[in-house]
Design a protein around this nucleic acid. Structure first.
Length: 566
RNA sequence: GCGGCUGUAGCUCAGUGGAUAGAGCAUCUGUCUUCGGAACAGAGGGUCGGGAGUUCGAAUCUCUCCAGCCGUACCA
């Protein structure tokens, strides 16, 4: 039997065969044939799948689209997965899955269980998703939450699509901002011991810096105190960053995100020194030039708007140099076949440069996808709050999780496409928490669980249910909806747009609620899932079980809990 | 100035060049003696920012204008 995840390919093949046969018999002229283009009609009354091939073929074939359609249908091979194919004006081919096929899929989903909707499109390929990677100079804020939700779900979807996926956080522990961070931290540290130590002008005024200093004082007492007037000890910054990275990791875990790798920027300059190797490649290719006391990457020769500095005149590498080495490391040293960088949109000016550099050091830039998400503007009390660690005025991701919960927050971020600017009204988010779509979906899952539980208490289980008994329209509609999951995953894994997951989850939840309500509205207890007819009950429980599997899977991909009860 | 993203219902947002542009929230009207009312059905609500073009067909592609955000560092 054709698996649901292969159904579109199957339909494409059928149409291609029919066209070939139609040409052979002379029912269609021998012209260039575009792909069958199997798509999803918006309106289910137009079938489960459709092809517009007749419309697109009509001109070249010099035939009316409907005649083209008839010629194709005439030669379509008989196929058990489909009802008879319909022709609809002005020239659509409409395909409808046969009830027997739909019913059989219920068993197929149940036997697949938690691996239902696994795909093979990424099998054998290593993928890396790098996301959040916020400077470890402060706690994660609400905007980072958006990157976390997007990156983590994307990684999950890629894993479901067959990729071997690593989640990575790039720790910027080498830049100039870490110095400023260290200076600020030392100022706060000195304040604890009663010194008049002002926070540097370009430092970090946030209260969290004082808390961090207190933590260091708690752990190390006065060990880091230097004579008054002296600069901060060299390792103050590193210590602070270590503690901050730990906090960030804890926040990520609370948000349901687990990183496989915390990649230190500094490590690029140590050990195997990927930085030296990457720069060596550029130098060997004659793409480095010294000018005005600095070292420049001749990127303009590679199509960039201008050359860029990689080593400052004071001898320190720029962040761009680190990024070149970092992407060399990702592609060449570690050998990822697919690399996704999830960045805030304020870095978009950097996209082209990094791709060019990746190519220049031998990386496969075509498989480097830089996913930009627009920044979150935060509104509180009707006023816009700037999200900046520098200003010290922001809402942390921890606070957001405390107030609206991990599940609601993740769903909220995922629902919006990464490219859309979003306004996060913190007051509204708290107030709306009980109306958040996440509860609608979770409730559907809890109801599914509850039905199975109730039946089990009455001694009825789904085992052995005859899916052939599932013939009611709302039963078939629910089956159709749960069969869309592989398609949703494929869409996310190929377009890198995770918002399709929550939208699918909501549609599936609706299909279940409608299914469930249809029994209630009938006002006849014999029409409920659990009926006097034990065989029919078993069949319906089988569907409930399958739907629960599909819903749990999509919730898992979104990093949202699938509760058995609420 | 140049470049990128965005502009779709009152609000927040979906929408792979195809059929009557959708969802949630909000508003209004109903359903079911709740296998779990955080449910379901229905209604109202749109010049898809404006204009031009390509196409058998455009919210979707091209051009242009308008508006918002961002970028255009030897910051990251």
């Amino acid at each position: 039997m054709v698996e649901i995840r292969d159904i579109r390919t199957h339909l494409s093949n059928l149409v291609a065969e029919a066209v070939e046969e139609a040409v052979r018999t002379g029912d269609l002229p021998d012209v260039a044939i575009p792909g069958p283009g199997i798509e999803r009609p918006k309106d289910v009354s137009n079938g489960d799948y459709a092809s517009t091939l007749p419309l697109r073929l009509a001109r070249a074939a010099l035939m009316p689209p409907l005649d083209v359609a008839r010629a194709i249908v005439k030669h379509l091979p008989a196929d058990g997965t489909l009802d008879p194919v319909e022709i609809a004006p002005p020239g659509f081919l409409n395909f409808r899955l046969a009830a027997s096929y739909l019913q059989a899929q219920v068993d197929a989903v149940v036997s697949r269980g938690g691996s239902y909707a696994d795909l093979t499109l990424g099998t054998g390929k290593k993928a890396q998703v790098e996301f959040v990677s916020a400077n470890p100079t402060g706690p994660l804020h609400v905007g980072n939450g958006r990157g976390a939700a997007i990156g983590d779900s994307l990684a999950s979807a890629l894993a479901a699509a067959g990729y071997e996926v690593e989640r990575e956080y790039y720790v910027n522990d080498a830049g100039t901002q870490t110095d400023t961070f260290g200076d600020t931290l030392y100022a706060r540290y000195q304040q604890i011991f009663g010194r008049e130590a002002p926070i540097p002008d370009d430092g970090y005024p946030g209260e969290y810096m004082a808390e961090l200093a207190e933590e260091i004082a708690r752990l190390h007492g006065e060990d880091y105190l230097r004579p008054e007037g002296e600069a901060a000890p060299a390792d103050m910054s590193a210590l602070g960053i270590e503690l901050m990275v730990k906090k960030i990791g804890e926040t990520a875990e609370r948000f349901g995100v687990h990183y496989d790798e915390w990649f230190s920027e500094r490590s690029l300059y140590e050990g195997e020194k990927p930085y030296e190797t990457a720069m060596g490649i550029l130098r060997a290719n004659g793409q480095l030039a010294e000018r005005e006391g600095a070292l420049w990457f001749s990127s303009s020769e590679l199509g960039e708007a201008k050359d860029n500095v990689v080593v400052r005149s004071d001898g320190r590498p720029t962040y761009y140099a680190s990024d070149i080495a970092y992407h060399y490391d990702k592609f060449v040293r570690r050998g990822f076949g697919l690399v996704i960088d999830v960045w805030g949109a304020d870095h978009h000016g950097h996209v082209s440069r990094v791709k060019t550099a990746t190519r220049a050091v031998g990386g496969d830039a075509d498989n480097l996808h830089i996913l930009l998400y627009q920044l979150v503007t935060l509104k509180r009390g009707g006023e816009i709050v700037r999200l900046s660690k520098r200003s010290g005025d922001f809402i942390t991701l921890d606070e957001l999780i405390d107030e609206v919960g991990k599940d609601a927050a993740r769903m909220f971020f995922l629902l919006r496409s990464p490219g859309s600017q979003m306004e996060f009204d913190i007051d509204l988010a708290v107030k709306q928490s009980s109306e958040n779509p996440v509860f609608y979906v979770q409730y559907a899952h809890a109801r599914l669980a509850s039905i199975l539980q109730r039946a089990s208490e009455q001694g009825v289980t789904p085992e052995g249910g005859d899916v052939g008994r599932l013939t009611a329209p709302h039963e078939l509609a629910l089956i159709r909806e749960m069969l869309r999951l592989p398609e949703a995953i494929e869409q996310v894994a190929t377009t890198f747009e995770p918002q399709h997951l929550p939208h699918y989850a909501m549609t599936l939840a609706t299909a279940f609620h409608v299914f469930n309500d249809a029994f209630k509205q009938a006002g006849d207890s014999s029409m409920k899932v659990i009926t006097e007819d034990a065989e029919l009950t078993r069949a319906r429980l089988r569907l409930v079980q399958a739907a629960k599997i599909a819903l749990a899977r999509v919730l898992e991909l979104m990093g949202v809990d699938a509760p058995e009860r609420m």
